[in-house]
C-alpha cells in the first residue's frame, strides 16, 4: 500500500488529499458547530453614532412609493398589525425574523410602536450579519404623525412649510393605498421582494405577529 502511494504523481496525491478532505467534510457535520455569533462592535458603534441605523418616516414613505426593493417588518402583535400597518409591511415576531434564512444584504426596515422593540431586533439582525437593516425612527407613532396626519403650525418656517407640502402629498398617496386606513392584507402581496412566505403566514395567524 505504501509503495503504491509513493508511485503516485504529485497531482494524484493532491487529488487524493482533496478527495479525502471532501469525503471527511461529508461526515464532519456543520462547520458552524464551534461558532457563536460574533458582533463587530466597532461597526455597530459607527453605524449608531453616524445615525445609519435608522431612517425617517419620510424616507421610508419614499422608498415604498418608488417601489424600491425594501422589506418592511412590523414587529407588533397581530391584532395591532391587522388594525393598521404600513403598506407592504409583513407581520413577524422577533423570533421568526431571526429564523428566516434570507438575504443578508437585502434592505430591511423594522418598526414597532415606539422604536425600542425595533432597535432590539436591529441589534440581533446585525449580530446575525445583516448589512442593510434599519429601524424606523420614532416607530409607527412617527409614521402616523409625519406621514398620515402631517400638521404644520401657523408660525412654521418656509422650510417647514416645504416639508409639510411634501408630507401632505405622501399622506394623500398612503391614504389611497390604504383606503380609510383599514386593514389591507393584500398589501402584503404587493411587497417587492420574493422570499416571504405570505401564504404560510396567513394560514397560521395564531402564531402571532
Amino acid at each position: 500500500m505504501n509503495t503504491k502511494f509513493s508511485s503516485f504523481s504529485l497531482n494524484q496525491r493532491l487529488a487524493l488529499l482533496a478527495g479525502l478532505l471532501g469525503f471527511l467534510a461529508l461526515v464532519a457535520g456543520s462547520p458552524f458547530r464551534n461558532q457563536s455569533v460574533t458582533i463587530d462592535l466597532k461597526e455597530l458603534a459607527r453605524a449608531i453614532e453616524s445615525e445609519n441605523d435608522h431612517i425617517s418616516a419620510d424616507q421610508l414613505a419614499e422608498w415604498i412609493m418608488l417601489k424600491s426593493p425594501v422589506r418592511v417588518i412590523d414587529l407588533r402583535d397581530s391584532v395591532s398589525f391587522l388594525t393598521y400597518h404600513i403598506p407592504t409591511a409583513e407581520c413577524m415576531t422577533m423570533e421568526k425574523l431571526l429564523e428566516e434564512n434570507t438575504s443578508k444584504d437585502g434592505k430591511l426596515v423594522l418598526y414597532s410602536e415606539g422604536g425600542i422593540h425595533a432597535a432590539q431586533a436591529w441589534m440581533l439582525l446585525k449580530a446575525k450579519g445583516h448589512t442593510n437593516v434599519y429601524t424606523l425612527k420614532g416607530g409607527l407613532t412617527s409614521w402616523k404623525e409625519d406621514i398620515l396626519f402631517p400638521a404644520v403650525s401657523g408660525a412654521a418656517s418656509p422650510e417647514e412649510r416645504v416639508l409639510f407640502a411634501r408630507r401632505k402629498a405622501l399622506s394623500e398617496y398612503f391614504r389611497i393605498v390604504t383606503p380609510s386606513l383599514q386593514v389591507d392584507s393584500s398589501a402584503v402581496h404587493r411587497k417587492p421582494k420574493p422570499p416571504v412566505k405570505v401564504k404560510a403566514e396567513r394560514e397560521r395567524p395564531w402564531e402571532g405577529c
Binding site: 482533496a18 471532501g22 462547520p31 464551534n34 461558532q35 446575525k128 450579519g129
Partner: peptide
C-alpha cells in the same frame, strides 16, 4: 476547491467565522 476546503475546515476548527 482549495479555498472551499480551507474555509470549511477552518470554520469547523473554529478558526474562521464563515458568517463574517
Amino acid at each position: 476547491v482549495t479555498a472551499m476546503l480551507g474555509a470549511f475546515w477552518l470554520s469547523w476548527l473554529g478558526l474562521l467565522d464563515y458568517t463574517q
